[in-house]
C-alpha cells in the first residue's frame, strides 16, 4: 500500500487534533496570567493543579479533592495528602498517587506522570476516542 493511498487512521486524525489542542492548551494555560497581570486585586486563582482544557478533542478537567480513603479491603487508612479528581468528557478517570508524588491513572497503570494534567493527557493519548467506563471495580 503506497502512503498516498493509505487510509487516514485514527492516529493520523489524533495527530492533527493534537496540533490544534496544543494551541488550545497553551492559550488556556497562559490566559489567566495575562488577565490577572493588570488587575490590582485578581480573583483568587484556581487551586494549584486545577485544569480544564480540550486536548485532542476531549475535554479534560482536574483538580484537588479533600483527603480520600484508599482501597484495600480492611486496611483503609487516610491518604497522605489531598487527592485529585480527573475527568474526560465529564466521566471520572480514577487516579492514584505514587510515593514520589507522581500520578498514575486507571488507563496507565504501569507508569506515572509528574502532574495530574500530564496523567489526563496521557490517558487521552491512550484511549483515543473511547469513552471511559462508568462501572467501578476499584474500591476507591
Amino acid at each position: 500500500m503506497s502512503p498516498r493511498t493509505a487510509p487516514v487512521t485514527r492516529r493520523d486524525m489524533m495527530r492533527a487534533a493534537l496540533t490544534t489542542a496544543v494551541v488550545v492548551g497553551t492559550s488556556a494555560a497562559v490566559a489567566p496570567i495575562v488577565l490577572a497581570d493588570p488587575a490590582p486585586a485578581p480573583a483568587p486563582a484556581a487551586p494549584r493543579g486545577t485544569f480544564d482544557e480540550v486536548y485532542r478533542g476531549r475535554r479534560i478537567q482536574g483538580g484537588p479533592v479533600p483527603v480520600r480513603y484508599a482501597s484495600a479491603r480492611g486496611a483503609a487508612a487516610p491518604a497522605s495528602g489531598p487527592g485529585v479528581e480527573i475527568s474526560i468528557d465529564g466521566r471520572p478517570l480514577h487516579v492514584m498517587r505514587r510515593a514520589d508524588g507522581s500520578y498514575l491513572s486507571l488507563v496507565n497503570h504501569y507508569r506515572s506522570f509528574p502532574t495530574p494534567l500530564e496523567a489526563a493527557r496521557a490517558a487521552v493519548d491512550e484511549i483515543g476516542t473511547a469513552q471511559l467506563s462508568t462501572a467501578s471495580f476499584h474500591h476507591h
Binding site: 482501597s71 486496611a75 487508612a77 492514584m96 507522581s102
Partner: peptide, 22 residues
C-alpha cells in the same frame, strides 16, 4: 480474576496495605 487484580492494585502514595504492587 480481572476484578481481583484491579482491586488489589493499591498505589504507594495512597493509604492502605499494598500486597500486589509497589
Amino acid at each position: 480474576f480481572v476484578r481481583l487484580h484491579g482491586r488489589y492494585f493499591v498505589s504507594d502514595g495512597e493509604g492502605g496495605q499494598r500486597v500486589g504492587h509497589m
